[in-house]
């Protein structure tokens, strides 16, 4: 800051304008979440200003509600399973794209990346119709299947980006040094892609954790937390929702931030810079 005076190629008005713009943009995005966060500690039953006194009552109420615990259990179980399955599938798809050239590869890529572009309501309905026909609707497994469908493309995109940064000779170099294809996968491809694989794991967990629409269609009695929240909301307006919302937000953000650290922090180290 102190040396801005020396920087002759900067217009302070533009600098300040840009800073204000960034702050306003963040305020716009995070204000609703911040409000929810603040009201979750507020003693008043209805969100209003001025605030009442600070309380943890709503968190206590949530923590003692068996329905919330059941929802959380479902959400975690689904989230972790989805994360692992979607990342495995996404990695396979990304590696296929990295390693092989084949006829119709563009179509393959387009199809593989398609699910997130389909409106969730339509996807949810389609899932319900399909899963109920094969007798899989209304349980945690059906939510897992549906979430893997929407999460795998994210995992693929993340891993694919990482593999595209890999020196194309690296895998062949491993083979040339005596590694079979499996050994090269284990000792070269996976270690290289590890930050992206973990990143994809956290992101897909976060996506599954937050996803409401499809879960609402297919979960039946095994509702995940977001579906439970809607249930609460329809029954009564309660600041407990703020408490749950805060919890869900913090969890998702933790996962996303972990993914970010993995993808950007380690990513910079991936390729030796051509110094000297």
């Amino acid at each position: 800051m102190s040396d801005t005076a020396q920087d002759i190629n900067r217009n302070p008005a533009i600098d300040w304008g840009l800073k204000a713009y960034v702050i306003l943009a963040y305020a716009f995005v995070f204000a609703p979440i911040a409000a929810s966060f603040v009201f979750s500690f507020n003693s008043d039953r209805f969100p209003s200003i001025p605030l009442g006194h600070f309380t943890l009552d709503w968190y206590r109420a949530v923590a003692t509600d068996p329905l919330v615990w059941e929802g959380l259990r479902n959400t975690l179980f689904v989230g972790v399973t989805v994360g692992v399955l979607a990342t495995a599938l996404g990695f396979g798809a990304a590696y296929t794209d990295y390693r092989y050239k084949f006829l119709g590869k563009q179509v393959y890529l387009a199809l593989a990346l398609l699910p997130p572009t389909i409106p969730v309501v339509i996807l949810g309905l389609a899932m319900l119709a399909y899963l109920s026909r094969i007798g899989l609707s209304g349980n945690a497994l059906s939510v897992i299947i549906a979430h893997v469908v929407i999460c795998a493309p994210f995992a693929m995109a993340i891993v694919r980006l990482r593999l595209s940064q890999m020196d194309p000779d690296l895998e062949a170099a491993a083979w040339n040094l005596g590694a079979s294809e499996w050994a090269a996968m284990r000792h070269v491809i996976i270690p290289f892609a590890k930050p992206a694989i973990l990143g994809a794991l956290f992101i897909t967990m976060a996506v599954s954790f937050d996803e409401f629409a499809i879960a609402w269609f297919v979960s039946g009695l095994n509702e995940t937390l977001p579906v439970k929240v809607l249930g609460f909301l329809q029954g009564q307006v309660s600041p407990r929702i703020n408490a749950i919302g805060t919890f869900v937000f913090v969890t998702s953000m933790t996962l996303v931030v972990l993914a970010q650290i993995l993808l950007t922090g380690r990513g910079a180290k991936s390729r030796p810079a051509a110094d000297e």
């Binding site: 020196d167 000779d169 170099a173 040339n176 050994a183 290289f192």
Partner: peptide
Amino acid sequence: TWSRDTPMVWQSLALFP
């Protein structure tokens, strides 16, 4: 290639980062 003893030094070096 993994069954031959013909190691190669690559133009890109291809060291494992």
